[in-house]
């Protein structure tokens, strides 16, 4: 353990803890653009700088480990004016037409500009913007909104390990692009959307992103309904409808999802969903009440059970339903119907 003070508050942390983590623990808010918990800190955005007594330079809190006796100040004049300058430098070349931006409300640049009182940049705009790429089925890329925090590139290369996004050129000409200037649709992109999930601005946004503002949605932590990996994710819900999915960090998924988990949620609110019980009458499935349907089910089961015994009935449980439902289904077949003819599609 190491002891240090942050803004005069003493704190003890495990060796190797970064200043940012220690601040989080104390509830001290530190602005960040490039920081992503799942990835090694690379310290490129410089927003999270703090003052460490005895150090000539400002130190980035995301990567600097706490040291014994360290005295950290998170909001000195030097720190605040530096952060303000970083915001101004980014704003100089940022497309500030926020009215049409899907990220409005969740944009970190916007949020910090407000917080640090930056209403305009004193610096000159000098960069031409690269063309938009709206070729993906699921998301849009607008380089004019990019602040080069490189989260997308790092997620694509280091977590998804797909190597679709890369940094092109250098210095002020640096931009995030695809090899050989390909469009997403022509590239090796697997549409996992993890770049979209981590973009702090409106550079990478879901195509459906304009349909909700972040303050309109609630988030519910759940488990992905697709393959057996069991990724953790948050459902974004607006007015009783699932409007988006964000990856969460789970035992099986380091804050990433695949194309199905991230984008294939439309079935939930799909008009084809069954909304009422159906009973086959005159050769056709016709709507029925729950009472009718349930009676019909039990009468059918009872009849066959009486005629041919319980083993004339078989039940297929579901690899898609919950443990509790499968348990109950199994219990129904064994305890209420009286047969061990219960299985599911594990083999299929």
């Amino acid at each position: 353990m190491v002891s240090l003070t942050i803004d005069g508050r003493p704190v003890k942390v495990k060796k190797g803890t970064t200043i940012l983590e220690a601040c989080e623990f104390l509830g001290i808010d530190i602005p960040t653009f490039c920081h992503l918990k799942q990835l090694k800190a690379e310290g490129s955005c410089r927003m999270c700088v703090v003052e460490v007594e005895g150090a000539r330079n400002l130190q980035i809190s995301c990567a600097t480990p706490c040291a014994e006796g360290m005295q950290v100040h998170t909001r000195t004049e030097r720190v605040v004016s530096f952060r303000r300058l970083v915001i101004e430098l980014l704003l100089a070349n940022h497309d500030t037409n926020c009215f049409s931006c899907p990220a409005t409300g969740r944009c970190k640049l916007y949020q910090y500009a407000m917080e640090y009182g930056v209403e305009h940049s004193r610096f000159a705009k000098y960069k031409p913007h690269h063309p938009k790429d709206e070729s993906s089925e699921f998301f849009n890329y607008d380089p004019s909104k990019c602040i080069l925090c490189r989260r997308c590139v790092r997620v694509c290369n280091n977590l998804q390990a797909n190597h679709t996004l890369s940094l092109k050129n250098r210095g002020p000409d640096t931009w995030v692009g695809l090899p050989f200037d390909k469009l997403f649709k022509d590239s090796n992109c697997v549409s996992c959307g993890n770049c979209v999930s981590v973009c702090p601005t409106g550079a990478l946004t879901a195509k459906a992103g304009k349909s909700y503002r972040i303050w309109e949605v609630t988030k519910t932590r759940t488990t992905c309904p697709y393959c057996g990996v069991g990724c953790q994710m948050d459902l974004l819900v607006k007015d009783g409808q699932v409007v988006g999915v964000e990856p969460a960090e789970g035992g099986a998924n380091p804050g990433i999802l695949c194309v199905k988990g991230k984008w294939a949620y439309h079935f939930v609110n799909h008009p084809d969903r069954l909304t009422t019980p159906l009973i086959r009458r005159d050769g056709e499935l016709q709507p029925a009440t729950w009472d009718e349907a349930l009676d019909y089910v039990t009468q059918g089961i009872q009849k066959i059970k009486e005629e041919s015994g319980p083993d004339a009935i078989a039940g297929f449980a579901s690899a898609r339903a919950t443990n509790e439902e499968n348990y109950l289904f199994m219990k129904m077949m064994r305890a209420a119907v009286g047969t061990n003819n219960v299985d599911h599609c594990a083999r299929l």
Binding site: L90, A92, Y126, L148, N169, G171, P172
Partner: peptide, 16 residues
């Protein structure tokens, strides 16, 4: 020309 473009103040600061 020689800034690598990684950190904001160098990438954006030098042109300014």
């Amino acid at each position: 020309k020689e800034s690598c473009g990684k950190c904001t103040p160098c990438r954006e600061g030098n042109p300014q």
